[in-house]
Design a binder for these strands. Structure first.
Ligand code: FES
Ligand code: FES
Lengths: 154, 154
DNA sequence: ATAACTGATACTATATTGGTATCAATTAAA
DNA sequence: TTTAATTGATACCAATATAGTATCAGTTAT
């Protein structure tokens, strides 16, 4: 059971790229090559995100995509809903024969509670949070260390 | 995003049927017609559950399937794992370019934490619990009332 | 004018999900 | 001992979802 599909995965990564360079236009080609996302696939995802108002675009040379909004307002839940449809455990597990009264059904409540839990967990994970986490994780990688060394010993 | 597929949904219902009449053999045909589950589909699910030791079977006339174990030891998590594979949010969301060090990666921890939450929520939901919930929900339906009346006024 | 871009959309391939069909083996009972 | 009800095993089919490609028209900085 795979919770995040490629759609969502790629979308998150693209948004991270845009959030990292917020305010400037990044072309699909650039994002595609930098983050190893199939070009045409990515373009479709970006357009979908434009339709949902998560990013904006500019056509023509030096055009591309840009994030205008606060990355902390974009949650993984939103992206799951866009690319995989709203989280639903099971429409109604026990129809006719088994479950007598829908309205009072304890199971239905149980199911809806779990849906809530799953959703709210992903709600907490925003592009902003991921970006900060990544920055923190990358603080210790050799690459950064080398850059620091280069600066210190030119 | 559909969390439970038909496989799991049907399997749960079949197990509820077996748990409700624990100790006696129920044929696939019987379960199929009573709970509106496609016959051949159901048979495959039942066999899969036998392979995983959740139920036992008896061949021939008056044969069928039976639940021997405690219904409270069968969780929805187990069924999801059998029919949809282990819950995994994303193998590793940010390979190469973005994420420097796998071992310390904060994101990885985040992802694994969510996996844990989802799994443990479904862990709490056992066949036994569902059965009790159903019984409670059905306490007020007309059908039961009619049976009681029939018994009182034969 | 041209090359680097996005917008829109159609297309293909593969995997997963949902469902059906078939035949052999077993067993209770007529 | 034949028969009918049943499971075991497995192959098959259809529909849908996922992943990825291709194409062409329109926009814009240079
Ligand atoms: S499970 Fe659907 S009404 Fe009870
Ligand atoms: S997300 Fe995979 S190592 Fe960080």
């Amino acid at each position: 059971m795979k919770v995040l599909t490629k759609n969502t995965d790629y979308a998150i990564r693209a948004l991270l790229a845009l959030a990292a360079r917020k305010g400037s236009y990044l072309s699909a080609k650039c994002i595609s090559t930098e983050h190893d996302i199939p070009y045409q696939f990515l373009r479709r995802l970006l357009q979908e995100m434009i339709r949902h108002g998560l990013i904006v675009s500019k056509e023509g040379v030096k055009g591309g995509f840009m994030m205008e909004m606060d990355p902390d307002t974009i949650s993984v839940t939103q992206l799951i809903e866009i690319f995989q449809g709203k989280v639903q455990v099971s429409e109604c597990m026990f129809r006719k024969q088994i479950c007598g009264n829908r309205s009072r059904c304890v199971l239905r409540h149980e199911i809806m509670r779990i849906e809530q839990v799953v959703q709210s967990e992903f709600e907490k994970v925003t592009i902003g949070k991921l970006l900060r986490d990544l920055a923190e994780a990358n603080q210790v990688i050799p690459k950064t260390a080398k850059i620091e060394q280069a600066v210190l010993n030119p």
